[in-house]
Amino acid sequence: MRWTVERLIEEIDLLGARGLPREEFFAELSPRLRNVIDNDASCWHTLDPSTRLLTADAPKELIERGVFAPEATPAAGELIVRSEYMVDDVNTFAGLAARRVPVGILDHVTRGDPRRSARYRDLLLPAGIPHELRAAFVIRGRAWGAVHIARRASSGAFQQRDADALAALTGAIARGIRASLRFDAARRVTGAEAPGMVVLGPGDEVELITPPARDLLASLHPREPRCTGETIPTPVLALASFVRSAPDGGQGGGNVVTVPGGDGWVTLHASRPGPHHDGRVAVVLEPARGARSATVRLEAFGATARERDVATLLARGLSRAEIAEALVLSPHTVEDHVKSLYDKVGVGSRQELVARVFLDEYLPEVVRQTPLTSRGRFDRG
């Protein structure tokens, strides 16, 4: 029996509330997606929310369902990166993330001639995948992930109704990816940005607590210097109570709050790690930080702060006009910044800039499968 889109959104929110590891979240999501959108396989990706560059992929289903042999996946990954950043191609993840509706069908955007796409010629056609549906998963302008959905010729082309259904799911999937990254980072408890995690039982008793969580909980008791870090402050108890009572575990909103602590603001993200009825709540705590500045590599090239802003937006696929609007600059000023960037970095195009400044840094981390922080960036700690 086919599912409605509304039912699948509920299922995705429940998956997100469980705080699953990223790959497990994707593995659970793929078969559920087929209850609404018929497909032969899907490949999920995470993106750096700041730059919209690929940070990880999950090609397991492409291998299991015979689209690619295991030994072919590294070469396929290189072709994906090439089509995303090194050549002008259609329906790139960064391009989709910039759209009001971040979904695209390859057949539609190429007007029935998919050979116009380098990705189709170099990757999809040799793999026997003539039909592709793609989406980026965006919340408030920040892209947390993306998906490639494949159909063989025997399965028929994707239709607009498939794209409409996927568009309706993008917010829920973005929330699920964001939750997975946050809980993945908390489980590792390593790196400079590692948050803490505390699991509360049905009666708010502490079942599990990580070392960083002790310090962060203590910081929420600035007037109690003898606090052991396991005395649960009121904001945490209130958030846990809300998540227990919310039908979707609060994934639709309200399960993330930022509260003042003795050493600055602390962000709390709560989720139900088990069945709805068991009353347990996991809370991730992390220091609230502002947006990270542009990469050190751009600084090494001598780029100014404004030029670093422009470079980041170029990497995200924005046009000159969109950059001007985003940064409240005139198009002429943006063009001057772009020319200055190209001169300093020694490149002549957007693709070369992304390759020189960003991909040299990102690709080794993707190949090494470097873990991600709760903010979707590589954890190099």
Results as ranks from 00 to 15, higher is better:
266 V>K: 03
261 G>E: 06
268 L>K: 01
307 E>F: 05
265 W>H: 12
260 P>N: 06
311 A>T: 11
236 V>W: 00
239 L>S: 05
291 A>F: 08
283 V>C: 03
267 T>Q: 03
269 H>M: 10
312 T>F: 08
276 H>E: 12
287 P>T: 06
255 N>C: 03
250 G>R: 08
312 T>V: 15
316 R>T: 10
254 G>R: 11
236 V>S: 02
309 D>W: 02
309 D>T: 02
239 L>E: 01
252 G>E: 06
238 A>P: 03
248 D>H: 12
255 N>E: 09
263 D>Y: 13
275 P>L: 15
300 A>N: 12
270 A>F: 00
291 A>M: 11
271 S>A: 13
293 S>H: 14
308 R>P: 03
309 D>G: 03
299 E>G: 15
295 T>V: 15
257 V>P: 00
268 L>S: 00
315 A>V: 11
271 S>V: 15
260 P>A: 09
303 A>D: 03
283 V>T: 08
240 A>V: 14
232 I>K: 07
258 T>A: 06
292 R>C: 06
244 R>H: 11
288 A>H: 02
308 R>I: 10
269 H>P: 08
243 V>Y: 00
283 V>E: 03
312 T>M: 07
299 E>H: 13
255 N>K: 01
267 T>F: 00
248 D>N: 07
294 A>Y: 10
257 V>S: 02
262 G>Q: 08
277 H>L: 14
302 G>W: 04
308 R>D: 02
264 G>T: 08
297 R>C: 09
301 F>Y: 15
264 G>C: 06
258 T>S: 04
288 A>F: 00
278 D>L: 12
289 R>I: 03
278 D>Q: 09
282 A>Q: 05
292 R>N: 05
286 E>C: 05
266 V>P: 00
310 V>P: 07
282 A>W: 05
301 F>I: 15
293 S>T: 13
308 R>W: 10
237 L>E: 06
315 A>W: 07
301 F>S: 12
279 G>W: 11
296 V>E: 10
304 T>H: 04
257 V>G: 04
247 P>L: 09
314 L>C: 01
246 A>C: 07
256 V>K: 05
